[in-house]
Simulated scan of single mutants.
Amino acid sequence: MEQQQFDIDRLVSQHMEKMRMEIEGKRRRQAREIMEAIEERVTKKLRGKEEEIEKIEKLNWALEERVKSLCIENEIWRDLAQTNEATANALRSNLGQVLASVSQQVKVGVGIETTAAAADKVDDAQSCCDSSWNLDRRTFLEAEGEKNGGGRLCRSCRVEESCALLLPCRHLCLCTVCGCRLHTCPICKSPKNAILHIKMS
């Protein structure tokens, strides 16, 4: 009986040890599978975050390049605005001098020369395109007309007052509508690059 009891205890002990080892093995396999699943999931998330970081870096680089180009463009526009402002101031000053000169010539007259002789002399003078600011025959006749109360009319429509200064020839001979419509100066036939609207006070 004692031997049988001992054998039974030994078999139970061996069976329990075997079951414990199997349970331990299953637990380890489950733990390993869980760790592998977690690691795979974390790896996917890390890969996705790295791709997002790469996209953000590319976008940031593109934005930096855009900001640099906008800064350069801003500098160019600022320089151009300053240049245009200086040109407008110079043109305004030159126009004031020309208008004052014309007004003085109209008030004082042209001396002992007749109107026709003075107009012929103006025709022989240099064109205004070389910045000599001489008047041609029509400008002189317009000045005479303004002296006589006729006013300075548009050379194209002959209705509106001339208020558009053509560049680069600097002839004040068109109204606003004709200045935008025509591409050449009606006096010297030079191509028009721009127009400056003059407010006659």
Score class of each variant (00 low, 15 high):
M35I: 07
L95E: 00
V110C: 14
R170E: 02
C173V: 13
G96K: 11
D123I: 06
E17K: 15
C169S: 04
I195Y: 01
K147I: 04
D79N: 11
D123Q: 05
A86T: 12
C180M: 07
I8A: 10
L166S: 04
R29K: 12
M21V: 13
S201Y: 14
K44G: 12
E51W: 05
V108H: 11
E64M: 05
E160M: 10
N94M: 09
A119V: 11
G151E: 06
E75K: 01
S69G: 02
T115R: 10
R66Y: 05
K107A: 13
R137D: 07
R158E: 02
D9W: 08
C157T: 04
D124A: 15
V177P: 03
Q105N: 14
M1Q: 12
E33W: 07
C173L: 03
E33A: 12
R47Y: 04
D120G: 05
V159R: 09
A117E: 15
W133M: 06
N84T: 02
R41E: 15
G151N: 04
I195K: 01
Q14M: 11
E64I: 05
T176V: 07
I56S: 06
S132W: 08
A62K: 14
K55Y: 13
C169E: 00
A143I: 01
E17V: 11
V102Q: 01
N94T: 02
I112W: 13
L172Y: 00
